[in-house]
Write a protein that binds this DNA or RNA. Sequence first.
DNA 1: CATCGATCGTTAGCCTAGCTCATTAGCTTG
DNA 2: CAAGCTAATGAGCTAGGCTAACGATCGATG
Lengths: 145, 145
Amino acid sequence: MADIPDPVTETDPDELRMIIQRLSRRIRVHRAADGISDAQLGVLFQLEKHGDRTPGQLAEHEGVTPPSINRTINGLEEAGWITRNPDPDDARRVRIRLTDSGSAIITETRRLRAAWFTQRLAILTPQERRLLQEVTPLLRRLSDS
Amino acid sequence: MADIPDPVTETDPDELRMIIQRLSRRIRVHRAADGISDAQLGVLFQLEKHGDRTPGQLAEHEGVTPPSINRTINGLEEAGWITRNPDPDDARRVRIRLTDSGSAIITETRRLRAAWFTQRLAILTPQERRLLQEVTPLLRRLSDS
DNA sequence: CATCGATCGTTAGCCTAGCTCATTAGCTTG
DNA sequence: CAAGCTAATGAGCTAGGCTAACGATCGATG
């Protein structure tokens, strides 16, 4: 710890960590209501943002193992939200593609969830929300690294 | 949505939500290494902070159902980190108490995890960490409400 | 003071979504 | 062209949520 500057420890990493966990659990619990899981939604978001992806790419970005992402993909395929397509250059690879129905469910789910989370955010003052907004990129960097 | 003021939506709730989820998953994945789960650790933290608690109190604070907390408590009891004791005033109640061994594991785990998360926080600048610290109470309110 | 609804903890059984390990197919390289 | 590497995936395990149901105890009330 000696090589890490003081201000780091001022943040009380432990409390922040626990809070993130609890908040995440709340979000996850809410999920059941709208018929799509967070794991699934995370994959759909990626496909929407980047176009076709392989299972390996999806797994890496989500920070889970390939078998885990595979299960998620199976569910998405059964629901008709994605298709598996061959990769023309490498037959080992599979290209996961969003279907029209998948795009539609993203839009709808985003609407539902945004409404729910937004409502939650409404307990904060406008200034506090602005602060939170500023911090979002930091949290993203923490979650990406 | 019309009844919710504009600044709320500026926060892009959806992205923040997804980031929180991913960060939480990273934290959880790291967990396996140190032999105690987040669910268990959350309970031990509460006992350390507030002294004896009933299963119901623990469940409410963690935002899970009584059967869920009960399973967690079983694990903690098997590990010898807590004991179940009768409540002198109400025989329906059970008082969960931290053992010495439980206190020790908290200290040790906190050390390990703080080191890990602190290291992660080190990718931010001192100013960014200060910002994050400011936001921590807001996140707590979001996770409590 | 007996009963009856409410409360507390708990067990049973289900589901999701991680994981590891093992297998198959296809690519790449000495 | 064989040996080894990589990608996807299946099987089986585990943790930790959930609901439903139950027994014990408490407290209020006829």
